[in-house]
Each structure stands twice: as structure tokens, then as C-alpha cells.
Write a protein that binds this DNA or RNA. Sequence first.
DNA 1: GATGAATGAGAGTTCATTCAT
DNA 2: CATGAATGAACTCTCATTCAT
Lengths: 192, 192, 192, 192
Amino acid sequence: MQTVKPRRRQARGERRIAQLLDAAADVFATDGYTAATTNAIAAAAGVSPGTLYQFFPNKQSMAEALADQYIAALAVAHDQAADRRIAGVPLDDVINQMVDPAIRIASENHGFTAVFHFSGRLQSAVTDQVDGLIAIRVPELDPSRRRLIALVTVKIFEALLPAVLSASGRTRTEITGELKRVLRAYLLDISD
Amino acid sequence: MQTVKPRRRQARGERRIAQLLDAAADVFATDGYTAATTNAIAAAAGVSPGTLYQFFPNKQSMAEALADQYIAALAVAHDQAADRRIAGVPLDDVINQMVDPAIRIASENHGFTAVFHFSGRLQSAVTDQVDGLIAIRVPELDPSRRRLIALVTVKIFEALLPAVLSASGRTRTEITGELKRVLRAYLLDISD
Amino acid sequence: MQTVKPRRRQARGERRIAQLLDAAADVFATDGYTAATTNAIAAAAGVSPGTLYQFFPNKQSMAEALADQYIAALAVAHDQAADRRIAGVPLDDVINQMVDPAIRIASENHGFTAVFHFSGRLQSAVTDQVDGLIAIRVPELDPSRRRLIALVTVKIFEALLPAVLSASGRTRTEITGELKRVLRAYLLDISD
Amino acid sequence: MQTVKPRRRQARGERRIAQLLDAAADVFATDGYTAATTNAIAAAAGVSPGTLYQFFPNKQSMAEALADQYIAALAVAHDQAADRRIAGVPLDDVINQMVDPAIRIASENHGFTAVFHFSGRLQSAVTDQVDGLIAIRVPELDPSRRRLIALVTVKIFEALLPAVLSASGRTRTEITGELKRVLRAYLLDISD
DNA sequence: GATGAATGAGAGTTCATTCAT
DNA sequence: CATGAATGAACTCTCATTCAT
């Protein structure tokens, strides 16, 4: 009985948090992280600035919360493709299974690009995934070299993502294709 | 000869402009373009804010002036390697002749990375150079596809440049090597 | 009754607005509209610049808010004299009933003169009142000519008001008398 | 022989002064006295700010120099009409001979209106002229009352001048007519 | 929890005026 | 005389954050 109230409170709080993060993602996407203002985010969420600070201690923390959301979404996608992550799968398939969900998640979450630039956590998470995949495919690779390759791979993805997202239709397909071509060429080169 | 007198006046101004641009490059490098403030630039140059505005109408114009400097420096480097830009040269040499001077110029000019992100002019200039080189090596390529490839190449360079510059010694060599590997693999892939 | 709570929040804000407008009127009166600075107004109101901008987007909007106050005060005075605004009243009485309240309001509101110069709204409101009065007294007058006469009347008032306000005692009475003399002579001239 | 050089210098200096005052009048007319900047005036005159300050110690002094020009021009016009300034002349003629040249001079000198507001000297000079005329026509008038009437007359002129100048063709004639009507009615009233 | 008022340092920019050349 | 570089205080306006209610 007494647990009902707390639950409601938590529920309301979580709704608020979701609402604020959605607003933050929109504003980050529109103005960029730096130019985004907490007042604008609060306004976009339809609450007062004070309310925002009841849930987030500062702007940075909102970006990090979004980063966590994106990390979780990527993990889900990654796990769904887990069964094909074994050694024998063609590289093209692996790339598709990494790039396509990532692009989809970035498309569906307006703030993704903006947050990616500022969240070391998100970058690390993605890099870890890539690193793991390379480890499976090229087990003999030196771990530190592998890390470097993973980093480079992620940087390339980060660099081309905005172009992909701002395009649509045929153009988007083209640019996505180019991104995959780069990655395949690079990663094939390593395996040799 | 008669121009000496008028020039003396400009000389001070031109020294100031150089001084201000140096300061701007430093501040851009340290704080990033967005966070850089005109007051900080003026202070770094040892002049008052008003002096800055006698030569530059705003921050953006300073970035563009730096971009022009970098474009000029790149053009010089490019021209010096002109004799080897002919068709038969190995791809590795071409990449070396593009990447090494670019990294050198970026090393010598602190503001390069920061300006690169915000100056369409600088990005276009580099893209044009790359586009031209591809045209020589793979003349049968469709021009619009060639432009896309050039753009991707430049984005990759842009994405990895900060990592190169923030490293030194062996690590820098390693990362530079990785950058070249990516480009070689990608560009070889096209020629097929 | 239920509106009490929400109002309490606005109450502070509305007090601040009144306080800021009072301060603005003082500063406008002292320095003139153009020379008045928002920082000076904020300081005069005992608040920080940021607070001012929470309620007014700029200096102009403060002048307009004051203009609205003055328009309202003039309307009240005008309405109180409404019963004597009928056709048969002597011109002298009409002039007294226009000029005296206007001077009183201008005396009681330090910013009046300064705002009058810059607020088309305030000028229009006063001109409309005068226009209406002339319409009652000289109905056969062409409306566009009537408007012109009203405009001239208001400009004369505006031109002599500062002299009236900066005087006091006997001198003020004298200058006020001169203002009324001008208007009476001019408006009598028209009726002919 | 030695006087040639100084003369040349003076001549050049006076040309500069005229050039600067013309520029100042233009800028005052366009932007108003307060908003006018000395840099803008110097630029409009085609000289450097330093040169401006070689001839005028500050902005105010330029307004005063212009005021002197206008006073001189008004004096010439006044003197030309001197023969009709005697007692018997109809009031309408006197008003015409005051108003018409003043409007002509204001038309021909863009800065007139702007300077009029800020130059006590110019206002006094005009007031003196009017005062003198009234003295001739109504010699029995108490001097201090006469001064007041002259002041009021000049304020009315000042108040309606911008409307006259910003109009043209028929409209200008109309407004000018209204100005004269006001003055005639007022001044006739006094003579009674 | 929620509100919105309040802060105040600091951003970009301007300008009358001075001074070295 | 002329130049134009230099000044620096002052201006308008912003925003992350705090706090009374």
C-alpha cells in the first residue's frame, strides 16, 4: 500500500527524465551541444529551468544520460546480431551488422551525432564493440594495435555519420556504401 | 620605391594582423573555435579588444584569414610535389606527398584543426586537391563519384588528424601509418 | 480563489516590472532615452542586468511599456472630462481639460517627456484624443485637415512641455498660460 | 613672399574644415547628432579620424561650427529682409520673411534640424531675431514677456520644421501653411 | 517536486579620442 | 598636416546555475 505512492513518484520522475532527455536531444541536434542552452532544453520540455536541475546537475550530465541511452540501444542491436559474430562470417556481413543498426539508431535519435562528439563513454562503448569483433576475426592481432584499429574505425564512422544522416534516399545509400567500402578495405587490409 | 612611405603605415598594421592571427590560432587550438573569445584572442596578442576589431570584424573572419594562410601553405607544398603527380607514380608515394606535408603544416600551425572544422573554404581547397589527384590517377571515374571519394578522403583525414597531432614520437608514427593505410586501402579499392 | 497560488509567483514578477519601469522612467528622465543604458536602469532598480532582461527584451520595450502606462493614465483623465466634451463648451474649457491633466500626468511621471519623443504609440494616442475633440467642435472640417491640425497641436504641446515641466511656481503658470494661448489662438483660427 | 605659404596652408585648412563640416552635416542628418560617430564623419569626409581632431576638438564642436554657419546664413537672409522689418508691415509678410528663408536654409543644409536640437547658440540666435522683430511691432510689450513669446515661437518652429522638411510638393506647402497659421494666430493674439 | 525570478560574470562589439609615425 | 593604429571603458545582451516560494 505504501509502496504505491513511491512508485508513482518514481514513475513521474522517470517520465520527467525521459521528457527532458528528449528535449535535450532535440536541442542538441538543432543547435549542437555547445550552443544548446539549458533554458532552451527546459522550455522544449515544457518545464521550468529549476525542474531541469532537479534531475540533472548540469548540461554535461544530460549528454551523458543520452549517451547511456544510445549505448543501451547499440548493445541491444549488437546482441541481436550476436549469433553471426562468429569467426566464419564474411566481413561484409559483419560490417553491415555493425553499421546498419548504428545508422538506424543515430537516425532515430536526433541527438546522437551531437552527443557522440562529447561523450567519451559513448565513443568507448562503440570502440569496445568494434574491438571485440576484430578480436574474434583476427585473434592473432596484438591487442594494442587492435585497439588502435578499432579507434580508427570508430573515428571514420563518426566522421562520415553526419553526411549519411543529412542525406536521404539514393544519396544516403551512396554515402552509406562509401562508408562501408572504406571500412571493408581498411579491415581487409589488416587481416592480411 | 615610392611605395615605401605608404607601406610603413601598413607595416605596423600587418604586423598586428599577423600577431592577432597567431594569437587566434593559439586560442582556437587551446579552447576550440566555439569557446574561443575575441577578448581572449586580443589579450593573447597583447592588445586591447578595440584593436582586434580594427582589423577583423568578428571571430569568423579571423578563422577565415587563418584558413587562407593554411590554404596557401598547402598549395605551396602541393606545388612542390607537382612533378610527381603524374600518372605512373605509386599510390603510396602520392599518399605520402599529400599526407606528410598536410600533417607538417597542421603541426606547425596550432589552429589548423580547429579552423578546419569551421572553414568550408579550407575543406573545399583540400578536397579540390584530392579530387584533382584522383582525376589524374583514375581518369575514367565519374566526376560526381570522384567528388564523393575526395570528400570521404578528406573527412577521414580530418577525423584522424587530432589523434596524430596529439601524439608524438613512435605513437605519432603509428597513427600516421594507420591513416595512410586507411587511405591506401580505400583508394586502391576504387581503382579496381 | 484558486488563482491565488499561481498569482503569488507572478506577484513578485509584477512588482519587479513596476520597479523596473519606475527606474527606467527615472533614467530616461535624467539621461534621455538614447543615452539611457539598460545597466543603469537595472542598477537604479537595484537588480542585476539579467533580471531586467527576464522581463524586457530591450530598452525599446521598456519605453513602450511606459508609453502604455501613460496612455492609460491619459485615457482615465480624458474619460473623467468626458461629460464636458460636448459641442457647446467654451474652447478655453476644452483646452484646460486637455492640457491640465496632460501636464499633471507628465509631472507625476518623470519619463513622460523622454518617452513621448520615441513612442509613436503615445503620440498617436494623444493625437487621436485631440482629433476626436476637434471632430466634435468643428464637425464640418475635412478629416485629413483635421488630422493635420491635431498633429500640429500635439507637436506644439510636445515642444512646450519640457519648458513647462522644468519650471515651477509662477514661471510654470506663465509658460502653461502661453501654451494654452497658442492652442486657443490656433484652434479658434480654424473654427472661423 | 613668405605670406604665400601660410595663405596656402590656411586655404587648405579651410577647405578641410568645410569638407569635414559638410560630412558632419550629412551624418548628423542621416543618423542624428547622438548616433553620429566621429569615425563616420571622418570617413564621409574622406579623411582619417586623426585629421578630424586636428580641426575640431570633439564632436560637439562640429555641431557648433555648423550652428555658426547656419546663424550666418540666417543673418544674411534676415538682413536682406531688413527694409521690410519696419512697424507698418502686415504680420503675414513678417512671418513669411522669417519662416520662408529659415525653411529654405534648413532645406539646403541637411544638418540643420539635428544641430538645432543641440545648439543653444543657434536657438538663441533665432530667438534673438524673433525677439527683435516683436520688439519693433509691439514696442509696449514687457521685455521678459517678449522673450517668452519669442521662445515659444521658436519652439513651435523647431517642432514643426521636421514635418515640413520631410514633406515635399503640395504636402510641404500645406504643413508650411499650418506653421504660419499657428504663428500668425499666436502673434496676433499678443498684439491685442 | 515545480516554479520562475534572480544572479553576475562575461561575451561580442563600439567609439570618442590619442598618439606614434 | 595627415595617417591609421591603439585604446579601454562602456554598452547590450546571454546563460548556467541557484534559491525563495
